[in-house]
Amino acid sequence: MSDVSSGRDRDRDEEGRARNARPRDGLGRPLPYGAEGVARQPEGVVRTPQETVAEAQALLDAGRPFHAHEVFEDAWKSGPDEERGLWRALAQLAVGLTHAARGNTAGGARLLRRGAAGLTAWAEATGRSAPYGIDLPSLDAWATALAEKVEEGAPTPDAATNAPRLRP
């Protein structure tokens, strides 16, 4: 099938859904076809909450918050309804760090604050502040501080150096 707006054939997955097959860098930015990128996170993987946290932390530590966001998104989509707000907020934090590290200060700060607010709302609604050992108050403080730094014009943050600790 063709993309009518550009006249180019669109990349498609096995089910025929549009999927960009261009390689991506560590922050998820598309690279030119043929360039060497980093391995993509497989989509739609069902993990235990503990596996989700461990895999996302490893990706964050490696400076790959875009990929960590994909792991959280899998949990958000496959987990129980009462936990979707938790995983969605964590995905927002990861993509907020992604945008900040790409130099998109406004978008990065906005998503960091949205994720922090989501964690607070979820914790208040459920009465849980450390689900699966995740330290929600510390993540809220981390996200708020990083949002303030990028809004104040601090240098573009390095994703690995500024990665949050999900568990103490």
Rank of each mutant, 00 (worst) to 15 (best):
D25R: 01
G7Q: 10
G153T: 12
A56M: 13
Y132Q: 09
E152C: 11
E70G: 08
R19G: 04
A163Q: 11
L59V: 03
R17Y: 01
E124S: 10
A117R: 03
L59I: 12
G133A: 09
G63T: 10
E152Q: 15
A159P: 12
D3V: 05
R47E: 09
A143F: 02
A159L: 12
A106R: 15
R167K: 12
E73S: 04
T98Q: 00
R64F: 00
E73W: 09
V46Y: 07
E148Q: 10
D25T: 03
P131H: 02
G79V: 04
P42H: 13
S5C: 15
S6G: 10
H99R: 09
R12D: 05
G26R: 06
A154S: 15
V45H: 07
T120V: 11
G103Y: 14
E151W: 06
A35D: 05
A154G: 15
T161I: 15
L60H: 08
L86C: 02
L139N: 04
L86T: 00
R10I: 07
R113T: 14
A94D: 06
A160I: 04
G108V: 08
R128Y: 07
A147R: 01
A125D: 05
P155N: 11
W76N: 04
A89T: 00
A125Y: 00
R128A: 11
T105H: 11
L31A: 06
R10M: 11
R40W: 06
V53Y: 04
R19V: 14
P32S: 11
I134V: 14
A91D: 10
A94H: 07
V38W: 00
V45Y: 13
V38F: 02
T161V: 12
L97N: 01
R29E: 04
D9L: 14
A62V: 01
R114V: 01
Q41C: 07
S2Q: 14
S129H: 13
R12P: 02
D13I: 04
A39S: 03
S138L: 02
V38S: 02
A75E: 06
A56P: 14
L60N: 01
R110Y: 05
T144R: 09
R19Q: 09
A18P: 10
